[in-house]
Amino acid sequence: MNRLLNTGLALAALLCAGAAAAAVDYKIVTASEKGTYYAIGKDLARLVAPEAGINLEVLPTSGSAANVKLLRYEPGVKFAVVQADVFQAFVDRSGAGNAEASTLIRPLRVILPLYNTEIHYIVRADSPYNYLHEIKDARINGGLVGSGAALITHTLYRMMFGGPVPEAQASFLSNEEALVKLIGDKSLDVVVVAAGQPAPLIANMKPEAQKFIKLLKFDPSHPSARQPLSTYAPATVRAASYPNLLSEDFTTISVGAFLVTYDYNTRGTVDSMRAFGRALCQNFERLQEQGHPKWREVKLALPELGPGWSYYSPTARELRACTPKKRCSNEERILGLCN
């Protein structure tokens, strides 16, 4: 009996070891650990990747522009969360003949459009600024070089005011460093945080924060908004996202986010990516229920993309054929009606 038991345990151990060995190690590049992109990556690693036989490591980065390069060149990086305007900026520069931009962006492919990322413009509570169109002469921190926040800050400024942010008024600090300077020595006037609401950095602030900071509004009807609205979209920041800071909803500006990969064609990688697409389909409801609130804004539909953008065929086929698992109620389980 003991021999049989030992044999059974040994066999079970071998099977478990074989299953573990079969998993592949991939990485996803996101943004700051306190940002929404990082939370999205953690959700995919926890709720999707294991079913696809993938050990998915979530890497914090400086943001979208850095993610494009990491996806292109960093070993093991198979997924990236990229801001739409960053991706488009590379496409535009590629189309204009920039060889480096072309090398970076041409082999990249979209797995799934995600959600709109709200752009939070933070100022001191006693600031004279209340709207984005009032910050022309402000000292602005757009985030780290390579981040999506930095690109949108400078792109929006140029669109709204007809020129670049003056060098003397621009800084490229992390959000945390910038907020210290905003409130501490007051050497900054505006800190820009690009993160889907609720952005952890802001949501985790205590009620006392109302004494020190406020968020700027975006006025879509203001003349300066005309050009930005050709690329970006208005979005509602909900008081429920930041109950310690807000008493009512207001309008800001937002930009789309995409889950992106490379145009892999080796059999093993294609098989893993196809399995990821199936697992994403089958676990999508779990993502919406157990993941970051932003998952509730995501759809598995694959809308038409603009020129220079393409879907990754192996995952696209899986998602277009997707029939998500129907969740089983307790009553159905008791009656034996669940597969």
Rank of each mutant, 00 (worst) to 15 (best):
D249W: 06
Q290R: 15
V255F: 01
T251G: 06
L287Q: 05
P50W: 08
L215I: 13
G308M: 13
F258H: 12
G308D: 06
N141M: 06
E57M: 07
A195F: 03
E208K: 12
P128G: 12
T155K: 15
A39K: 14
M1K: 14
I111P: 00
G41I: 03
P128Y: 09
V255A: 10
E57I: 07
A84D: 06
R93D: 08
Q197N: 09
P303Q: 12
Q288F: 08
A99N: 07
A80I: 05
I122E: 00
T7P: 00
S310C: 01
E100T: 13
V91R: 15
E100L: 10
E57R: 13
V298Q: 07
I28P: 01
A233S: 14
R3C: 00
E285W: 04
A209G: 05
K136Q: 14
L287R: 13
R238Y: 00
L188P: 00
A275V: 11
L246R: 14
P314S: 06
A321N: 14
C16S: 09
F258D: 01
A168R: 14
G142Q: 10
L70E: 02
E332L: 08
Q282I: 05
T30I: 06
L44R: 12
S224D: 00
A239Y: 04
T266A: 08
S254P: 03
A239M: 02
A209V: 13
G63N: 05
G53Y: 12
E74G: 02
V68L: 15
I122C: 00
A101I: 12
G163V: 13
S224K: 15
F79D: 00
T315H: 02
I28C: 05
G8E: 11
R124S: 00
G76C: 07
D185E: 09
S147Q: 09
P223A: 09
T231K: 15
N2S: 10
I152A: 03
L112Y: 04
N116M: 04
E248A: 12
A149W: 02
R333E: 04
V192E: 05
F258A: 05
T323H: 13
L108Y: 11
T251H: 11
L302Y: 09
L132P: 00
L335Y: 07
K214R: 13
A225C: 04
V81W: 03
D271R: 15
V192A: 08
A65E: 12
P314H: 09
L56T: 06
W309F: 15
F161W: 08
E167K: 15
W295F: 07
K69Q: 06
S64N: 10
T252W: 11
D263C: 10
Y312F: 14
N244Y: 06
L337I: 08
P293D: 01
K206F: 03
A45S: 15
S127F: 02
G291A: 09
S230G: 05
E289G: 12
G277H: 05
Y115T: 11
W309Y: 15
P200S: 11
A301D: 14
R278K: 10
A10C: 09
K325R: 15
